[in-house]
Amino acid sequence: MKNKSLKKINYHNAIIPESVSQYAKQPLYIIISLWCQQQKKWVNRNDIAQAFSMPERRASFQLSYILSRPNYIHFRSRLQTQPGMRHPCNEIWVERVIIESMKNKTKSSYLPDTKSRRTIMGSYRSRVGNGMSGSKDVWQTLVMMRSAKAEGGDE
C-alpha cells in the first residue's frame, strides 16, 4: 500500500495512506477511523502507528479519542492480550463513520454561557436556600419581640 504525505500543518508529520487521502481536510481521528473501517478487521495502536508512520504513543492517543466519540464513529471495542505483552491493549472494529461538513454544522439549541457572566456570590449562585426565604420580616419580628421583653422586664 502506497502512502501519500500531506501538508504537515494539522497532522504533525503523520503520513496519510493513499486510500484515505481524499479526506485530508477532515480531523486526523476521522481519517484514522475511515482507514480502520476499510481494514474490516480488529485494529490496534500498533497497526495505526505503522500505517500512519506515527509513534505508538500518539496512535494510542488517537485510538482513545476515537473511543470517546461514539456519536460520530460506530465501532466495537475489546481488550486483547497479545503474546509477549503483559498488559492488554484496546482493539477496535469500525463499522461506520459519520462525516459532517463544517459548512453544514449548526447549533441545535442555544445554551447561554453562564460562567462568563458576573454573579453575586452566596445563596443566589447555588440556588440553595439559607432558611430565610419567604420570611422577609423575621428579623424585624425578632427585634420587636426582644424589645418588648426588654421593656416588660424593666417595669
Rank of each mutant, 00 (worst) to 15 (best):
G129D: 04
S77L: 12
K40W: 07
S60H: 10
M102E: 09
K25L: 12
S116R: 13
S68A: 09
P17D: 06
I73S: 04
Q50I: 12
Y29K: 06
D113G: 06
K103L: 06
P112D: 12
Q39I: 01
R146A: 11
E151R: 15
S64W: 09
N71F: 11
S108R: 14
S60M: 13
L63R: 02
N71D: 15
L34R: 04
V128C: 06
R127K: 15
M144K: 14
E56Q: 10
T119I: 12
S109E: 13
K40F: 07
K8D: 08
M54T: 10
S108H: 13
I32P: 00
N90R: 14
M121H: 14
I15D: 03
S33T: 02
R45L: 05
S19P: 00
Q37N: 11
R69L: 09
S68V: 01
M144L: 15
Q38L: 14
L79S: 11
S133W: 04
S64N: 15
L79P: 02
Q38V: 05
P112Q: 11
F52E: 01
E151S: 14
A148N: 04
L34W: 01
S123P: 02
E91F: 01
R69F: 03
N46I: 10
I48A: 01
S126H: 04
Y65I: 07
R118C: 07
V138F: 11
I16M: 05
T81R: 12
E56K: 10
P83K: 08
M144F: 12
W35V: 00
E155Y: 03
H87I: 14
A24R: 08
I30K: 01
P83C: 04
R69I: 03
V143G: 01
N46M: 08
G134H: 03
R146W: 07
S77C: 15
N130W: 05
T106F: 08
K7F: 11
R117I: 15
E155K: 05
G153H: 14
S133N: 03
C36W: 00
N44R: 12
I30T: 03
W139M: 13
R86H: 05
R45K: 14
K8W: 02
G134L: 04
A51Y: 01
N13L: 11
C36M: 09
T119W: 05
R146D: 09
Y23H: 15
Q37A: 11
I99L: 10
Q80K: 15
I31A: 00
T141P: 01
L63N: 02
W93H: 10
E56T: 12
K136A: 05
I31K: 00
Y29A: 03
Y72M: 08
K103S: 06
S123F: 05
I32V: 15
F75K: 08
I30Q: 01
M132I: 05
S116H: 09
S116P: 02
Q140C: 07
S19C: 07
I15S: 06
T114K: 11
Q50W: 06
F75S: 05
C36N: 03
R76G: 06
V143R: 10
S19R: 02
T141W: 06
M132F: 08
A24H: 10
G84S: 03
Q140A: 11
G134N: 04
Q140F: 13
M145E: 04
Q82M: 14
C36K: 00
